[in-house]
C-alpha cells in the first residue's frame, strides 16, 4: 500500500462524484421529457449542491453534525473500494463483505444524524428507510451469496471479470435470470426510486430523514446521495451486468442502467412501507431462493450454459 493507492482512491472519489452528478443531471432532463417538460440544465445538480454548500446552516446538537460527517466518511471510504472496469485503488480488497459493511456505516451515520435532529418526521423517515433496507437486502444477499458460492470468490472485480469475454451471454443477469431480476428490483429499493420511495415522500412526511437539513448539511447529504448511488449502481453493474472491459464501456453501461431504472420509476406509483416489505418478501425472495437452489443443486449458469 503506497501513497499512489491513496492518490488513486482520491481520483476514483472525485471521478465518481462528477460522473454520477452529471448522470443525475441528465436524468432530471429525462424525467422532465417524460413529463413533457423542457427540463433543467444538465449541470443543474452541480448548481444545487454548490448552492446548498454556500448557504448558512444551524446545528441541532453534535449528534446531528457528527452523523453527517460519519455518513459522508463511511460512504467515501466505500467508494474507494469499488472496482471500476478492473481499476482498483486498493487491489484485492474489493470484497463484497467489506463494501456492504462500510456501506452500513454510512447508512447508520445518516440514521443517527436524522434521529439527532429530534424531528418526528425524521424518525419516521429513518425507520422506514431501515425497514426498506431490511426488505431489499435479504433477497439481494441471497442472490449475492449464490454468486459467491458459484464462483468461489467474494471479490467484486473477479466476479465482474468472469462475466466478460462472452458478450451479453456472459452476464450473470442472463446466466441466472431470476437472480438478475431480483438484483434489478433491489436496485430500485437501494436507490430509493419510485415504487420504494416511501421513506423520502416529500408531501407525506416532508422528505423524511432530510427534513431538518438545511444549507451545508443538506449539501453534504446531496454529495452523499450521489456517492451512494454510484456505489449501489456500480455494485449491481459489476455483479450482474458484467462490469466493463474499459472505462468507456463501463460508463456507458452505467448510464444506461441508471437511466433505465429512472425511466421505469417515473411511471410508478408509491408503495406504502408495509406493501414494499410484503412485495420484497413475496416475489423477489422466492425468485432468489429458487435461483439459489438451481445453482446449488443443478449448477445451471455457473461455468457453462446448462
Amino acid at each position: 500500500m503506497t501513497v499512489m493507492n491513496f492518490v488513486y482512491g482520491f481520483i476514483i472519489l472525485l471521478a465518481a462524484f462528477i460522473f454520477q452528478t452529471t448522470i443525475t443531471g441528465f436524468n432530471r432532463k429525462v424525467t422532465a421529457r417524460i413529463q413533457k417538460r423542457y427540463g433543467p440544465r444538465w449541470y443543474q445538480q452541480f448548481l444545487d449542491i454548490f448552492k446548498a454548500l454556500r448557504k448558512s446552516s444551524i446545528t441541532h446538537g453534535w449528534i446531528f453534525d457528527f452523523g453527517v460527517i460519519m455518513a459522508l466518511g463511511g460512504i467515501m471510504a466505500t467508494v474507494i473500494f469499488i472496482p471500476v472496469a478492473g481499476f482498483e485503488a486498493f487491489p484485492n480488497m474489493d470484497n463484497v463483505y467489506i463494501i456492504s459493511y462500510l456501506l452500513a456505516i454510512g447508512m447508520l451515520g445518516m440514521a443517527m444524524s436524522a434521529a439527532g435532529s429530534g424531528n418526528p418526521w425524521a424518525s419516521i423517515g429513518v425507520s422506514r428507510a431501515l425497514t426498506n433496507m431490511l426488505a431489499y437486502d435479504i433477497p439481494l444477499m441471497i442472490v449475492i451469496f449464490t454468486l459467491i458460492f458459484a464462483f468461489d470468490t467474494a471479490s467484486v472485480s473477479e466476479i465482474a471479470a468472469m462475466q466478460q469475454g462472452m458478450g451479453i451471454l456472459g452476464w450473470n443477469a442472463i446466466r441466472m435470470p431470476l437472480g438478475g431480476i431480483v438484483a434489478f428490483i433491489a436496485l430500485f429499493g437501494m436507490l430509493g426510486k419510485k415504487p420504494f420511495d416511501s421513506f423520502i415522500a416529500p408531501a407525506e412526511i416532508a422528505s423524511g430523514p432530510m427534513v431538518e437539513y438545511g444549507g451545508k448539511h443538506l449539501g453534504f447529504m446531496f454529495i452523499l446521495h450521489e456517492l451512494m448511488t454510484f456505489i449501489e449502481v456500480s455494485l449491481i453493474l459489476n455483479l450482474f451486468f458484467g462490469g466493463g472491459s474499459s472505462i468507456l464501456v463501463y460508463a456507458i453501461k452505467y448510464a444506461i442502467l441508471y437511466t433505465l431504472v429512472n425511466i421505469i420509476s417515473q411511471v410508478m406509483p408509491r408503495y406504502k412501507i408495509d406493501q414494499a416489505v410484503k412485495f420484497f418478501y413475496r416475489v423477489p425472495l422466492v425468485f432468489a431462493i429458487i435461483q439459489g437452489l438451481v445453482v446449488i443443486f443443478l449448477g445451471w449458469g455457473v461455468s457453462v450454459w446448462f
Binding site: 432530471r28 422532465a32 413529463q35 413533457k36 417538460r37 423542457y38 427540463g39 433543467p40 440544465r41 443543474q44 448548481l47 444545487d48 448552492k51 448557504k55 416529500p202 408531501a203 416532508a206 422528505s207 432530510m210 427534513v211 431538518e212 437539513y213 438545511g214 444549507g215 443538506l218
Partner: peptide, 22 residues
C-alpha cells in the same frame, strides 16, 4: 411548475421544508 411553463428550466423547484428552501 408543470409542462406548460416549467419553472425547472430556471432551476426552481418545490422543497418540503423551510430549512431546505431559499
Amino acid at each position: 411548475m408543470t409542462s406548460r411553463f416549467d419553472m425547472e428550466r430556471l432551476g426552481m423547484g418545490p422543497m418540503a421544508t423551510p430549512r431546505q428552501a431559499d
